[in-house]
Amino acid sequence: MMAEPMVKIRSVRKRFGPLEVLKGISLDVLAGGVVCVVGPSGSGKSTLLRCVNRLETLDSGRIWVDGDLIGYREQDEKLHMLRPAELSRQRQDIGMVFQRFHLFPHRTALENVMEGPVTVKRASKAEARQRAAELLERVGLADRAHHYPAQLSGGQQQRVAIARSLAMSPKLMLFDEPTSALDPELVQEVLAVMRDLAGSGMTMMVVTHEMGFAREVGDHLVFIDGGVIVEQGHPREVLADPRHERFRTFLGQVR
């Protein structure tokens, strides 16, 4: 029996004013799978990711995460928009890591990681602190727990951001170009944490330009251009033998 995918994306369309960014995208992410989404800038790959935790609304289409329809409740064949509180509930299970980290600058690394459990899940401070310390240890930043984001390098900030998302024990992690804002020598430390996470069985959707990471860690690679999926398949296969001209050109540019 085939298991229900963790993420089910069906015929998603999204426009910003006159510009249609997503022109009908369907995609499955299996539980424990790592899907890498690549494509030129402006291709809609980040928008797709942001639709999954409803930082963007859809114009049409459906997205389910772990069987839950995102943003709506289907009742008597009618869609009802979710209340803000219900939407927040859905987001708790979906971690998101941003290109520009977006750590809370007024809180230390440890406090950043504690913030979700304490504020959203009403965890006790002591419990949250211990778990945050463990997570910082896991991303290799135990010695930076009491530093403020401004005192950390980009790579360290991004690793704290990953720990902050993990603190909510999500079912799914979304990575929106997690290494694009980093100095080249800091990229690997973040990728190492992500590789470790994938190895632990986390379901991940990763928008990235790191083809090496996609080839090594990804189970599935999706190339998006002009708002549609142009090519997809197992990373090693599609990277070794790209069929579409557009994909070939893109690979030539990022390599």
Partner: peptide, 27 residues
Amino acid sequence: VDPGQREAAESLGMSHRQVLRRVVLPQ
């Protein structure tokens, strides 16, 4: 306050009120 701060807080599952009180107003 950088809109990314709100997005980061919302993606943790914070309500509007929590985002305002814990993240936006302090900054």
